[in-house]
Amino acid sequence: MPEQDVAESAPQVVSAFLEQRREQIAQRWADAPLFRWVFTVSRDEAVEACKLVVDALSEVAVSGRLEDVATAGFAPVRDQLGRMAQTRARAGSTPAQIAGEVAGLRGPVIELLRAEFTDPDTPHAQECVLALTLLMGTLRLVVMETALDANADLIERQRQQLLEVATPVIKLWEGTVAVPLIGTLDSARSQIVMESLLEAIVDQRARYAILDITGVPTVDSLVAQHLMKTVAAARLMGAECIVSGIRPAIAQTIVQLGIDLGSVLTRASLADALAYALSRQGIEVSRADAGASAR
């Protein structure tokens, strides 16, 4: 019985308790919302997952590093609960909700520990309960950290996908490609635009590349710089770039801000830019019925 051996430190008592009551704790935790949500199919699986967490906690307790989030003993917890937290995050739970669910594991296990003592109000018993409370608090931090990491990864991945999706390069004609830019042109975005445009120039063997900024809300000096860099890079590869879709309001801003677009070739609309590119390649477009008989 723990209270008989006063020499044992609280973390050691907690560790021994976790080891002895492993089965009971796991059975109780398996019914907690966190495990119920994730292991919807099999309760046995939930119990097994709970046992892994109990074992890990016992190991951390015996090492005495109850408040050390980075201690090696938490590695299996990170792995197990981290995956569960990710599952929950994907299902739409916020890190705060997940943390709340982990906090919900504390009640049942504290209750079991208190029941171990004939008098749970002795200083030693209280010390042991406090140690377990600390340990459960650290567990909550570990899970929350893992959940936040998973979220950050998810957001970054989505941001990247959005960047790529938002910048298609279209072949308009033999030897002419265009990128319709929509939305704000920041540094990350313009890098991707530049890369995909240059790749398209190689793939399509394009001589002309049109950057259409009809969908770009504002052009400041930074955006202008991005545009000029793209034009310069395309030229180094032997393609001529045309910036089209400069709306009157944007043209005014450009002039008012004193932005020098330098030697960048501009056209009012995408159609004008295409017409320029075609005429430079000696391609003439005319109505089929002009001077020809009806089919």
Binding site: Q191, M194, E195, L198, E199, I201, V202, K229, A232, A233, A234, L236, M237, G238
Partner: peptide, 11 residues
């Protein structure tokens, strides 16, 4: 000129 080289030169 390769695309990566062109981008780097401009930068």
């Amino acid at each position: 000129m390769r695309p990566a080289v062109a981008i780097t030169l401009v930068e």
